[in-house]
Each structure stands twice: as C-alpha cells, then as structure tokens.
Design a protein around this nucleic acid. Structure first.
Lengths: 100, 100
DNA sequence: ACCGGTGTTTCTATAACCAGAAACAGGACC
DNA sequence: GGTCCTGTTTCTGGTTATAGAAACACCGGT
C-alpha cells in the first residue's frame, strides 16, 4: 500500500543523525538494493551537473537504462529529486518546457 | 560503494517535510522496491508489538522469509531499527541477551 | 553533406528477491 | 506423552531490476 510508504517517509523525517540514518537504511535494505538506490542517487547528482550520460554510465559502472530513468525524473516539472538537489547545492538542469 | 549510501543518508536527514520525503522515495525507488521496503517496515513494526509471525505474514500478504529477516535485525543489540521504533512510540521486544 | 557526440529506446540474458510450502526444534498446556 | 502454537530454516519456481549491446533520431561543426 501507498499508506505504508507515507508512514515510512514520516519516520525518516524524524531522523536527524546521519550515522543513524545510514545504519537504518542498511538494515532495512538488502545489500544489492542499497547499491542500486545509492547508484541512482549518484546518477541524478551527475546528471544535474550536466555530465554526458555515457560518461556517467562508465564512471559508475552502470547501464544506460538507469540513466534514462533518472533523466526522466529530472525533466518532470514537479520533481522532488530536483527540489532536493537544489537544496543540497547542486544546480539541476531546468525542467522540460514542452511539458505534458 | 558504501560512501554513496552515506551521502544519501545525510541528504535524507535534511528533509523535514513528510510529503516531500514521500515523493522523493517514490521517484528514487521502483514501484516494487517501494512495496518491498515499506513491507519490511510494516513487518518490524508488527514484530515489535509482539504479533505472531504467521499472522503478520497473513495480514501483509508476505512470506515468512521476510519476517525472519526482520526479526533477526530486531534481535541485534545495536539495531538502528529498534532505536527508531522506540522513538516512534513502538515498544520493541528486548534484545537477545545471549548475544554474540 | 558528412560525421561525431548526444539522448533515448529496445533487446536478451543474468542475478537478486520473494512467495509458498515444507520441515525442524522449542515451549505451554492438557 | 500428546498436541498445538511458536520461531526458524530450507527448498523450488517465478518475478523484477539490471547489464551490455545495439539501434534510432537530433544537433552542431567542419
């Protein structure tokens, strides 16, 4: 259910300690999931810096299908990932003007 | 890399808005991953309440292999999940006394 | 016009995670 | 002793996300 994810999201907002958050993630995720998810985070960070997708794939040892996925999210006008990236000091590319 | 997960963890600690956190998760996770992960969260919540594992499996439509996994984490003395559950008002079962 | 770089999509094979069932050991109760 | 409920582990098959390669269209420079 979506409700469950909302509750988990709220719980995460209550965690302010970086180290506790990291341990919490490692316990809740499988090792491979942690790799995949943090890999996606690296992807969107690099995409927001304007790096070419093929170079990102090389650097991270990931496949292009992931990059496309991340770039789709970044292009959405109301993307939460873009909002977070801005707050973290990254400079995201502008949203797609020719929106849906 | 583990370093990436630490960075993601730190970013998560900067998000205080529940709704933004939920959207961020939905964009960063696949639909199935979100189901699985929030399912695990439901599992440990119910485990901490002392519900029988088979009843949890029934209620959530999940298999016992997941429950065992969660219960293993909860038994660890330095479990981050237990720490979080306590903060959220749940009353986790005590850690395994015959620890490693 | 050509060519190199770009973003995007599609294909097949592989590996991770899980459902469902079964089996085992331990304890409580009668 | 027998029975039931409990937690735990193991097995097989199926689903899901990905890697790696290939193909397409677009654009700018020469």
């Amino acid at each position: 259910m979506k409700r469950s994810l909302d509750e988990l999201a709220e719980t995460l907002t209550h965690i302010d300690d970086r180290e506790l958050m990291a341990r919490f993630l490692q316990e809740l995720l499988t090792a491979r999931e942690a790799e995949r998810i943090s890999g996606r985070w690296e992807i969107v960070k690099r995409l927001s810096e304007g790096l070419p997708q093929r170079r990102i794939a090389e650097e991270l040892g990931l496949s292009l299908c992931n990059i496309t996925r991340g770039s789709r999210e970044l292009r959405r006008r109301d993307s939460a990932i873009r909002t977070i990236l801005e707050r973290e000091g990254y400079t995201p590319i502008p949203p797609d003007e020719s929106g849906p």
